[in-house]
Amino acid sequence: IEKFKLLAEKVEEIVAKNARAEIDYSDAPDEFRDPLMDTLMTDPVRLPSGTVMDRSIILRHLLNSPTDPFNRQMLTESMLEPVPELKEQIQAWMREKQSSDH
């Protein structure tokens, strides 16, 4: 029984630690959010139409349809242009958020 109590305490400790580690990014500025999924972008790319999306989301879309989801023009992965300035701004915002939450 004592071992179970210790195990339960350890589990509670881990759960509390994980809860502290989770950071809420739901208040991200609109320009940091993917327009299709409304999630925080981690690897922004510009489509030929000028729309900026997260790379993982547009690549997932391209698996089903080789088109720009906003104007239905033909689109391939090679046409995606990285946006390193925005990526750095997002990373800086995330770092600031992490340091203010801890």
Results as ranks from 00 to 15, higher is better:
residue 71 N to T: 15
residue 66 P to T: 05
residue 77 E to M: 07
residue 96 E to N: 07
residue 22 E to K: 04
residue 5 K to E: 09
residue 38 D to V: 15
residue 16 A to Q: 03
residue 94 M to Q: 11
residue 61 H to Q: 01
residue 101 D to K: 04
residue 15 V to F: 04
residue 47 L to V: 15
residue 97 K to V: 06
residue 17 K to A: 15
residue 96 E to P: 03
residue 25 Y to Q: 06
residue 3 K to L: 02
residue 13 E to G: 11
residue 71 N to Y: 00
residue 93 W to S: 01
residue 10 K to G: 12
residue 15 V to E: 13
residue 27 D to G: 13
residue 83 V to K: 05
residue 9 E to V: 07
residue 64 N to S: 05
residue 94 M to N: 06
residue 50 G to D: 03
residue 85 E to Q: 10
residue 81 E to Q: 09
residue 25 Y to F: 12
residue 39 T to V: 02
residue 73 Q to D: 04
residue 99 S to G: 10
residue 2 E to A: 06
residue 26 S to P: 05
residue 7 L to P: 07
residue 77 E to I: 06
residue 39 T to M: 02
residue 5 K to P: 08
residue 89 Q to R: 11
residue 97 K to Q: 13
residue 96 E to L: 08
residue 21 A to K: 05
residue 74 M to V: 08
residue 45 V to G: 00
residue 38 D to S: 02
residue 91 Q to T: 12
residue 26 S to G: 12
residue 37 M to L: 14
residue 83 V to W: 07
residue 39 T to A: 03
residue 33 R to C: 03
residue 48 P to T: 02
residue 24 D to Q: 14
residue 40 L to V: 13
residue 9 E to Q: 08
residue 14 I to P: 07
residue 81 E to N: 03
residue 71 N to I: 01
residue 10 K to P: 13
residue 100 S to Y: 06
residue 74 M to I: 11
residue 98 Q to Y: 06
residue 67 T to H: 02
residue 4 F to S: 10
residue 64 N to F: 15
residue 73 Q to K: 09
residue 17 K to L: 10
residue 52 V to I: 12
residue 51 T to S: 12
residue 60 R to P: 00
residue 96 E to V: 11
residue 99 S to V: 01
residue 91 Q to R: 12
residue 71 N to K: 00
residue 100 S to C: 11
residue 48 P to R: 02
residue 79 M to T: 03
residue 63 L to T: 04
residue 79 M to V: 03
residue 98 Q to L: 10
residue 64 N to I: 08
residue 45 V to L: 02
residue 74 M to N: 04
residue 25 Y to N: 14
residue 19 A to S: 07
residue 18 N to Y: 09
residue 18 N to P: 04
residue 5 K to A: 14
residue 77 E to L: 02
residue 33 R to S: 04
residue 73 Q to M: 12
residue 37 M to R: 01
residue 72 R to C: 00
residue 28 A to V: 13
residue 99 S to P: 15
residue 17 K to S: 04
residue 78 S to R: 12
residue 61 H to N: 00
residue 54 D to G: 02
residue 72 R to D: 02
residue 66 P to Q: 08
residue 94 M to F: 15
residue 77 E to V: 05
residue 68 D to N: 15
residue 78 S to W: 00
residue 99 S to L: 07
residue 15 V to L: 11
residue 12 E to H: 07
residue 50 G to E: 08
residue 26 S to V: 15
residue 74 M to Q: 07
residue 12 E to N: 01
residue 97 K to I: 13
residue 64 N to H: 05
residue 83 V to E: 11
residue 36 L to M: 01
residue 46 R to G: 03
residue 57 I to N: 05
residue 18 N to I: 08
residue 20 R to C: 07
residue 12 E to D: 13
residue 36 L to S: 02
residue 74 M to G: 05
residue 80 L to F: 08
residue 62 L to R: 01
residue 8 A to I: 04
residue 73 Q to S: 06
residue 39 T to F: 12
residue 24 D to K: 01
residue 97 K to H: 13
residue 35 P to H: 00
residue 27 D to S: 13
residue 18 N to S: 10
residue 94 M to A: 14
residue 42 T to L: 08
residue 82 P to H: 03
residue 98 Q to V: 15
residue 30 D to H: 06
residue 102 H to S: 07
residue 93 W to L: 03
residue 73 Q to A: 15
residue 82 P to A: 11
residue 76 T to V: 07
residue 29 P to R: 05
residue 93 W to C: 01
residue 67 T to I: 02
residue 26 S to T: 12
residue 89 Q to E: 06
residue 81 E to S: 14
residue 33 R to T: 05
residue 53 M to V: 15
residue 66 P to R: 08
residue 9 E to D: 11
residue 87 K to Q: 14
residue 97 K to R: 14
residue 3 K to V: 04
residue 63 L to R: 10
residue 55 R to L: 02
residue 58 I to L: 03
residue 4 F to V: 07
residue 101 D to N: 09
residue 42 T to K: 04
residue 77 E to K: 06
residue 82 P to T: 08
residue 102 H to P: 10
residue 26 S to I: 15
residue 52 V to L: 04
residue 11 V to K: 06
residue 43 D to N: 08
residue 43 D to T: 02
residue 46 R to T: 05
residue 3 K to T: 08
residue 13 E to S: 11
residue 29 P to E: 01
residue 53 M to G: 05
residue 21 A to G: 07
residue 15 V to Q: 15
residue 18 N to A: 05
residue 8 A to S: 14
residue 43 D to G: 00
residue 96 E to Q: 11
residue 87 K to T: 10
residue 1 I to F: 02
residue 8 A to T: 09
residue 82 P to Q: 06
residue 102 H to Q: 08
residue 89 Q to L: 08
residue 52 V to D: 00
residue 61 H to D: 00
residue 84 P to R: 07
residue 90 I to T: 03
residue 100 S to P: 15
residue 25 Y to V: 01
residue 42 T to S: 11
residue 80 L to I: 04
residue 43 D to Q: 01
residue 13 E to Y: 15
residue 19 A to D: 07
residue 61 H to Y: 00
residue 30 D to A: 06
residue 41 M to L: 05
residue 56 S to Y: 04
residue 4 F to W: 06
residue 80 L to Q: 00
residue 22 E to A: 05
residue 100 S to V: 13
residue 51 T to P: 15
residue 6 L to P: 10
residue 78 S to N: 09
residue 67 T to V: 00
residue 64 N to K: 02
residue 101 D to C: 06
residue 10 K to N: 12
residue 102 H to L: 10
residue 97 K to P: 08
residue 70 F to V: 00
residue 11 V to L: 08
residue 74 M to L: 14
residue 7 L to R: 09
residue 26 S to N: 14
residue 84 P to L: 13
residue 37 M to V: 07
